[in-house]
Design a protein around this nucleic acid. Structure first.
Length: 418
RNA sequence: GUGGACGUGGCGAAGCGGUUAACGCACCGGAUUGUGGCUCCGGCAUACGUGGGUUCGAAUCCCAUCGUUCACCCCA
């Protein structure tokens, strides 16, 4: 039997909900624009290598979550699982490194990852994100973080905290990794199966494992923040200093790891405190090696990405209700065929003049049409029967005060604009 | 990929082995033939996710499957 249901992990945003979506998207564009970020629109699919190289082929995303297919020309393409790699590719391909640096960009749109659905996790989900390419200045890190904070406040969201960390550069990270492995080696066999495999894959993650995180030997493990090289350490201190100056509250979380290979130095997450297991609403950091990895010059970058769906989970009920309402300026009520003919012309007139209006096409009775006007929260009902047609007028009824007046078609727009 | 919970009309929700599967909301109409939001009356719909099995009899029990959901992993 044919399956006409939507694929697992996808969602339909029905009209009742699209109001909030539009509101959040508009806010995002507004704030990004305020900070002088400009939109970058890239394809929804890219050559698979972009993500393999960019995101890192040891990551979960690349190993098991990509929607990869072969097109008719035999190319391997992949639906984008995140936004940064595509933006960087476009930056390089468009030779934007030849222009004014740093370049500041933002994007907004769907991403795809083959994962099992959960609260706040979808296979097709929407991200907004920003990137600053070409600046190594810690002030750029701070701006990116402060922007995210500003954006959340602008949406009236307050139940979140900002976690901050530095994951160092390839040099100090590998030094630390060596220390860490030596420290944990004696207890390797006591760790959970997940952590056993993390030993090779991503030892940093053992530190915040839900099972082994409390193990005494794990608690005393060397922290990355105590083993940063001098440059990384100076950079990290500067970022913290700038955030303090800007009044952005954060907590240092040395156990925080980011899942994508390209991160260097600054890493941060905004975590919703009233969400389920998938609680990161915005995540980001610095990626100094990525641009050259994708064939561009050796330029540094910082940015973040946030999930629309998770953000919407934190938007408060009241605002959501308000944005869901179905509203009309005027509802036209017609009685009889002659009235209908006249009514559609009135409707056209209203709409040409920017008045949001509608009428019934389902053959409802007069009473039912009035009920409809009510349901659509129409400010006025315009009643048209044989009398009105004859006088080329409409009976204008204020739905709140219930006051009525006969208005000629010539005066209608003027009266309604009052 | 792993584990738990759940799948009854458009939505919510009873029923948990026996005959017409409650009820509420929504929707449509009437009381009120050109005046709404309340009230009352009436109407409405191929509802037991799907496929097998047990039984004289299954929405109710068993198995499988699909889907939803929560959590792990991971991440937005």
């Amino acid at each position: 039997m044919a399956d006409f249901s939507r694929p697992p992990g996808t969602m339909d945003v029905l009209p009742e909900k699209s109001g909030v979506w539009q509101w959040v998207e508009a806010k995002a564009r507004e704030v990004f624009d305020l900070y002088h970020y400009r939109e970058m629109r890239t394809p929804i699919f890219e050559h698979t290598e972009i993500f393999e190289r960019g995101v890192g082929d040891t990551t979960d995303i690349v190993q098991k979550e990509m929607y990869t297919f072969t097109d008719r020309g035999g190319r391997s393409l992949t639906l984008r699982p995140e936004g940064t790699a595509g933006v960087v590719r476009a930056f390089v391909e468009g030779k934007l490194y030849g222009g004014t640096l740093p370049g500041k960009y933002y994007y907004l749109g769907p991403m795809f990852r083959y994962e099992k659905k959960q609260a706040g996790r979808y296979r097709q989900f929407n991200q907004y994100g920003i990137e600053v390419i070409g600046s190594d200045n810690p002030r750029a890190d701070a701006e990116v973080i402060e922007l995210a904070d500003h954006f959340l406040k602008e949406l009236g969201i307050s139940h979140y905290r900002l976690e901050l960390n530095s994951v160092g550069c390839p040099t100090c990270r590998s030094d630390h990794k060596k220390l860490l492995l030596e420290h944990l080696a004696p207890i390797k066999n006591e760790l959970c199966p997940d952590c056993q495999s993390r030993f090779e894959k991503n030892p940093l993650r053992i530190l915040d494992c839900k099972i082994d995180g409390h193990h005494p030997q794990v608690l005393t493990a060397p922290k990355i923040t105590d083993h940063l090289c001098e440059d990384c350490s100076t950079h990290f201190d500067a970022v913290k200093g700038h955030l303090n100056a800007l009044g952005v509250a954060y907590v240092i979380t040395p156990t925080m790891v980011r899942g994508l290979d390209y991160y260097t130095r600054t890493a941060f997450e905004f975590i919703g405190t009233e969400l389920g297991a998938q609680s990161t609403i915005i995540g980001g950091g610095r990626y100094n090696g990525l641009i050259s990895m994708l064939g561009g010059p050796d330029l540094p970058g910082v940015g973040f990405a946030g999930g629309l769906e998770r953000l919407l989970l934190t938007v408060d009920e009241a605002r959501e209700q308000e944005l869901a309402a179905d509203r009309l300026d005027a509802f036209v009520i017609a009685m009889g065929d002659a009235a209908m003919d006249f009514s559609v012309k009135v409707l056209q007139l209203l709409r040409k003049n920017g008045i949001r209006a509608d009428m019934d096409y389902a053959g409802r009775t007069f009473r039912a049409q009035l009920k409809l006007a009510d349901r659509y929260h129409a400010k006025v009902a315009l009643i048209i029967g044989d009398d009105e047609v004859e006088k080329q007028s409409v009976t204008l009824r204020d739905t709140t005060s219930k006051e009525q007046q006969l208005v000629s078609i010539e005066e209608l727009i003027t009266v309604l604009h009052k």
